[in-house]
Nucleic acid binder design. Structure first.
Lengths: 245, 245
DNA sequence: CCGGCAAAGTTGTCTGACAACTCTGCACAG
DNA sequence: CTGTGCAGAGTTGTCAGACAACTTTGCCGG
């Protein structure tokens, strides 16, 4: 391996294997070539290949069986798996529709209590806020609000972020998002949200309050997303209750 | 390593490390001993230790930094993280309340369409169904229905499962649950659910439809769980958008 | 006081070997 | 002909040692 990127080798190998599976080249149930063989073909060491396979096993995509081989799991393909997919744009694109946005509005505003708490700041601290209604094929499907510290991104930078996405703009400022924690609640549409999402007042919604942090635990972005009840099938892949027999 | 268990070595090492972190012996931000040192102490090879660390990195618990060391992440502890926690009993216990159940009712019934589809069976196939209202300190918090194939567990076995939990009863019959996929929807309480959960009719609910599968993709259990809006904070840990910088 | 550099320490990857396990197919007894 | 047992080949799991790539520390010279 002479071609070096930033991601570690095992992640790049995992990407390559994942692509093979998702493209259907390795159909569900299929057995992978043996590790030495595959390592030779991909020009990597067996240990790096094994690390990659371990990642994909953890993801639930592959299933190595001692003494037999490594197989492709045929679990339902979750394009909208919450635990792997941070961005609303991707969720929309994954359903095959064209993502868009309207009613974009960015300004400095006082942090609501829940948001301030997530950042660990006092109530009312001024924050950059970006409000959008995201659309799929022109139809409104998510009402989102993103908050971040103004010294990191000012409202103007949030509304038109470098690199196209707020995540990338944050990454360029040294705040690459490592993980997020999302909390879900059912809700009913009040007049304001009903108008923005073009649904009847009082109709069912799912709200998702999320705090995104960097690898060292700094909260970099907080967002509130509001979905009409049936805009998406919001799913989560859950691991089994330990391997205890 | 002469002491053999069922779980693979790296999982056992990971368990040990996880315990060290959760017990507070390795506080957030702390640097682990170096890999060679730790491997020597735990009497395992460095490669096995590295595999374990990779697992915990994927879990978000540890953060190895090339050339520097491996550190404990201080991410918020999610007691009710959906993506790691399958059982309603555990969710209740994690909030510090005492789990219980009432209105337990088990019988053979025709599979509703959505359930039949999850099993890949025709509509109306008879299935074992177990209906319960689970309680926390006596207060109703989840209305659950579990379905499984009657040749695996008959209604009587479901109502009083060997080993105490349906999961364990399934595992003893060679159907250990490996993963599940849960889909969330907001809903409103109809008369029946309102009475069972002791909430006003029309109040907000979160429903969670889940299919649990074995390692080879066989659907072993399907369940529908209904939560009052504020019974739990249902959260998900989401990985960041790739490591691309 | 500051900048640069070398050295020590750490994680990432490679190579080769053997152990543990699974699966296939053949020989052999019934 | 059939079923059983066993040996062998093939595969994943683990081990050991080495070097590369990177970070951090601290010294030295300006």
């Amino acid at each position: 391996m002479t071609t070096h990127a930033r991601r570690s080798l095992r992640h790049r190998i995992a990407d390559e294997l994942r692509a093979l599976v998702l493209s259907g080249e390795l159909p569900p149930g299929a057995q992978l070539p043996s590790e030495p063989e595959l390592a030779r073909r991909m020009q990597v060491s067996r240990s790096s290949l094994r690390s990659a396979i371990a990642l994909l096993e953890e993801e639930g995509l592959l299933r190595p069986v001692h003494g037999s081989g490594t197989y492709v799991n045929d679990r339902p393909l979750l394009r909208d798996d919450l635990s792997r997919n941070l961005s609303g744009t991707e969720m929309i694109a994954a359903t095959g529709r064209t993502p868009g946005a309207r009613l974009t509005e960015a300004r400095l505003e006082a942090a609501p209590p829940e948001v301030a708490a997530a950042f660990g700041l006092p109530d009312g601290t001024p924050l950059s806020a970006l409000r959008r209604v995201r659309t799929a094929d022109g139809e409104p499907v998510i009402d989102t609000t993103d908050w971040c510290r103004p010294e990191v991104l000012d409202p103007v930078a949030m509304a038109d972020p470098a690199g196209g996405s707020v995540y990338q703009a944050l990454a360029e400022r040294g705040l690459a998002i490592h993980h997020g924690v999302a909390t879900m609640r059912p809700a009913m549409a009040d007049a304001r949200v009903a108008e923005r999402l073009e649904v009847p007042e009082g109709s069912l919604l799912l709200t998702l309050f999320q705090t995104d942090s960097t690898a060292d635990g700094v909260v970099a972005l907080v967002s509130l997303e509001i979905y009409p009840a049936d805009a998406f099938l919001i799913s989560v892949y859950r691991r089994g209750p330990g391997d205890e027999s």
